[in-house]
Nucleic acid binder design. Structure first.
Length: 550
RNA sequence: UGGGGCGUCGCCAAGCGGCAAGGCAGCGGGUUUUGAUCCCGCCAUUCGGAGGUUCGAAUCCUCCCGCCCCAGCCA
């Protein structure tokens, strides 16, 4: 699956910067906060940042933006690193942490104080909000705004030394309380938080805010293009203000793109956490979750995800991508890479009354790729077929087995149904059929061709397996607009059943993907599958254009 | 009613003054031992709207309309 690189504003910008000699090397970074698992929106950001670096021969860093220890943890750091690698990317050098720059950031805060550009403010959070004004009214200066440099230094050192309670004081930039851009109304640079940090332990009781940290982190790492999402555009003047006021080692530039939205799913860490905490799903990596770990367990491949992100494009206009586009990318990849096998999910017994002895058939593992080889499949007198593939009578549109009619057993013979057993409820319990001789690889001599092809599994060595079929987690296209998740969650998003697999599938390893012919794509569960107790997750069904009107 | 963005086919999205790419979905037809795949064809005289500049505008200018973001000591 070749992915054409299409033009977008970021590539145009970078190409221009390179051509004009504004930058000599592209350096990007993927900067997640370790407060949850990565989701499809992050996958987009990852492909954008690592992809750009790759395309232009540059580098991309992985940096944890860990400036708010309250919600962060090592667990998330580990999961995120694994996700990035699994997606197929390797970052430059060691993993970076905003927290490893805390010392430098503190010194720069002092520099701002010394140059009269920052002050310690004693206003409470509520008071500060009042002073900030509103969208249409300017704010008022804090009564602490004109403290002397000396006083500010003393107070800020005392904040660091832990002499004040959480929230008692903050360090703020002195910019413009009447700016129409609220981010410039003396934003907070440091706040007091007596929280043990997952990286720095109890070294600090004050932590820098995102605004004061991010640009400087970029400058320290020599980031040339700091790419983020649209909602940070209003922060750019502040980002630039710090870069210009501080003796930073480089001059990074921020660029913003529209975040990825996909219908029938949510891409908000807060909402995903809600799903996990409420027990609506089994965890962050539940196959129904739009997290990278969830999609991995579901059976989506890194290639499919990368291709999807490229196909969707990167622009500055908000939009909602149809989940069908993601599914298309998944099917596309699986169609090419997944070996075929047979499994019967809804078994109905069928006896081949004229089959004398068990035969061994050679079946191709892929209809269009002979390099995937062939496998041997046994055919015995008793086999399983799918209940949906048999009818006592049907119209001409039905291309499966009907009493008195013929179908071909995939990879095997054409058979003809003679009769069937029916129980007291009218349900078919067993089908009897005969093998039409001389039909291995050729049509019947009598000219009566098979109506279609059905899959089957030999009863004599069938492997029993648990099948977990997934449907979309939400019943509505825009679940994020709902006030209450309970209203929009699809209560039947998981269905478990037992299936019979062809014998060769007993050797499937965890995370191996197959197409169970005519059923869909399946993956051996990463955690629960074993040869003794096979467990397969349904990745996605085959495209189905069959109109059920017969 | 302040500031910042965005509006090109049902959904994404190229295009950057020279006469509307591509993908997804959809619709026809062909091939097929998967109702899959594959193949062929169709699918915006028109770019939120109205004016204007120009030989020529989706691309430039003006006004209007619609949608998104910002008032965390979150990121």
């Amino acid at each position: 699956m070749d992915t054409e690189l299409r033009s977008n504003f970021l590539r145009t910008q970078i190409q221009s910067d390179l051509d004009q000699g504004l930058v000599d090397r592209v350096v990007t970074r993927f900067p997640p906060e370790p407060n949850g698992f990565l989701h499809i929106g992050h996958a987009k950001s990852i492909t954008v940042n690592f992809g750009l670096a790759q395309q232009y021969g540059g580098r991309c860093n992985l940096r944890f933006d860990d400036t708010n220890p309250e919600k962060e943890s090592q667990t998330f750091i580990d999961a995120i690193e694994e996700d990035v690698r699994w997606l197929g990317y390797e970052w430059q050098g060691e993993t970076r942490y905003a927290s490893s720059y805390f010392g430098q950031l503190f010194d720069w805060a002092v520099f701002l104080i010394d140059t009269g550009r920052a002050y310690v403010c004693d206003l409470s959070a509520d008071e500060a909000r009042t002073y900030r004004g509103t969208l249409t009214e300017p704010g008022k200066n804090s009564p602490y705004r004109d403290r002397t440099v000396a006083e500010n230094r003393t107070l800020f050192e005392a904040m660091r030394a832990g002499e004040y309670e959480d929230g008692e004081r903050v360090l703020r930039a002195k910019i413009d309380m009447s700016s129409p851009n609220i981010n410039l109304r003396d934003p907070t640079l440091y706040r007091i938080r007596r929280v043990t940090h997952h990286q720095t332990g109890d070294d600090w009781v004050i932590y820098p805010t995102y605004d004061f940290a991010h640009g400087q982190e970029d400058a320290i790492e020599g980031i040339s293009h700091s790419i983020c999402t649209l909602e940070f555009e209003d922060h750019k003047p502040l980002y630039d203000w710090f870069i210009e006021c501080l003796p930073v080692p480089s001059r990074p530039r921020q660029y913003e793109f529209a975040r990825l939205n996909v219908n029938y799913t949510v891409t908000s860490k807060r909402k995903l956490k809600l799903l996990v905490d409420s027990g609506a799903v089994a965890g962050w990596d539940d196959p129904r979750m739009p997290t990278i770990a969830g999609m991995r367990r579901r059976g989506y491949s890194p290639e499919a995800l990368r291709h999807f992100c490229e196909e969707v494009g990167t622009s500055r206009s908000d939009g909602v991508v149809d989940v069908g586009m993601l599914e298309s990318a998944v099917r596309n990849d699986l169609n090419v890479h997944a070996p075929r096998a047979m499994a019967v999910l809804n078994p109905l017994a069928l006896e081949l009354t004229n089959l004398a002895a068990t035969e061994i058939l050679s079946v191709a593992n892929h209809p269009a790729d002979e390099t995937m080889g062939r496998r041997e499949v046994t055919l015995s007198r008793n086999i399983w077929i799918d209940r949906e593939d048999f009818r006592q009578e049907a119209n001409k549109k039905f291309k499966r087995l009907v009493v008195g009619k013929r179908v071909r057993l995939r990879g095997g013979y054409v058979i003809e149904a003679e009769r069937c057993d029916v129980d007291v409820h009218g349900e078919v319990t067993k089908v009897y059929a005969t093998v039409v001789p001389q039909t291995l690889g050729e049509d019947p001599d009598d000219g009566v061709k098979a109506k279609g092809v059905i899959h089957w599994v030999d009863q004599s060595n069938a492997v029993e397996a648990e099948i977990r079929s997934y449907d979309r987690l939400f019943a509505v296209s825009d679940p994020s607009s709902a006030e209450d998740f309970d209203q929009v969650i699809n209560q039947n998003s998981l269905t478990t059943s037992t299936a019979f697999l062809e014998a060769s599938l007993a050797y499937a390893v965890p995370e191996a993907r197959y197409q169970f012919e005519r059923e869909g794509y399946f993956i051996a569960d990463r955690y629960d599958h074993s040869s003794e107790q096979p467990v397969f997750n349904k990745v996605i069904g085959l495209r189905d254009t069959w109109v059920t009107n017969d």
